[in-house]
């Protein structure tokens, strides 16, 4: 597969959705409230649907999901972080869904390969963002324990948020404007949740790059091993 700007962009956006969907799927049977089992699965299914459309733009969805090596995945490091507690999941949802809504809003407004997908997905991710905000408020402004857990989660994931605004070749949006709007929106929600906006650096100090360059964190390899194992054990089989 030759990676053109267009397929590269489809992979970046598609891998984000695929990997986050997988991580959310890990909650099945473990959610803190039964109603939340249904809510998290809805979000995971929306993301998986987006991933399938995007990966299909770049090639065969299953080949891309199951047969690429770790270094060929282009997703953000944020989405591959292992579960953690419910606060980590909500903090990640807040960071990512806010980004996705802003990005897809811009993509939906322009002509181009991603406009159709973005127009549909923007409605889904607006709901994901709402879900994340509702829970951020409740965890941040709930009990002392939940506040502390949410504070820790927001800080722990903060260092993965800078990567989101690294321009993706083939995606023509106002990245700087996106970043400003994101900071504003997330800061507002955190403040309403009585949480402070983390102050640490928003990206790692590794000059080689991060997820968009195919450089991932250690847990990602194990995630892929689990996800790809069965498919790879039966080369060429149909399912």
């Amino acid at each position: 597969m030759t990676v053109t700007a267009h397929t590269g962009a489809a992979l970046a956006l598609g891998d984000d959705a695929l990997v986050l969907s997988h991580r959310l799927g890990e909650w099945a049977g473990h959610a803190p409230v039964l109603e939340e089992e249904v809510a998290l699965a809805n979000i995971a299914l929306d993301l998986l649907g987006q991933a399938r459309v995007l990966l299909s733009m770049a090639g065969d969805e299953d080949e891309l999901a199951y047969l690429r090596e770790e270094r060929a995945f282009r997703n953000l490091q944020l989405v591959e972080q292992p579960g953690g507690d419910f606060a980590h999941t909500i903090a990640r949802q807040l960071y990512f869904s806010t980004y996705q809504r802003l990005l897809y809003t811009q993509l939906a407004a322009q002509e181009g390969a991603f406009a159709g997908l973005a127009a549909k997905a923007v409605k889904e991710v607006a709901y994901h963002q709402d879900h994340a905000e509702q829970w951020t408020l409740r965890l941040g402004d709930g009990t002392a324990q939940s506040h502390e857990r949410m504070r820790r989660a927001c800080e722990a994931l903060w260092r993965f948020t800078g990567e989101m605004f690294q321009p993706i070749e083939g995606v023509e949006v106002d990245w700087a404007g996106l970043q400003t709007a994101w900071l504003e929106s997330v800061s507002d929600t955190l403040r309403r949740a009585t949480l402070e906006v983390p102050e640490g650096p928003r990206s790692g100090a590794w000059a080689a790059g991060a997820g968009r360059q195919g450089l991932h964190t250690e847990p990602f390899g194990r995630m892929l091993a689990e996800m790809q194992h069965l498919h790879r054990s039966h080369p060429g089989a149909s399912w």
């Binding site: 109603e35 249904v38 809510a39 809805n42 709402d130 879900h131 509702q134 409740r138």
Partner: peptide, 8 residues
């Protein structure tokens, strides 16, 4: 949350 749970 009731409204959102109902939606889901």
């Amino acid at each position: 949350l009731a409204l959102r749970n109902a939606r889901d």
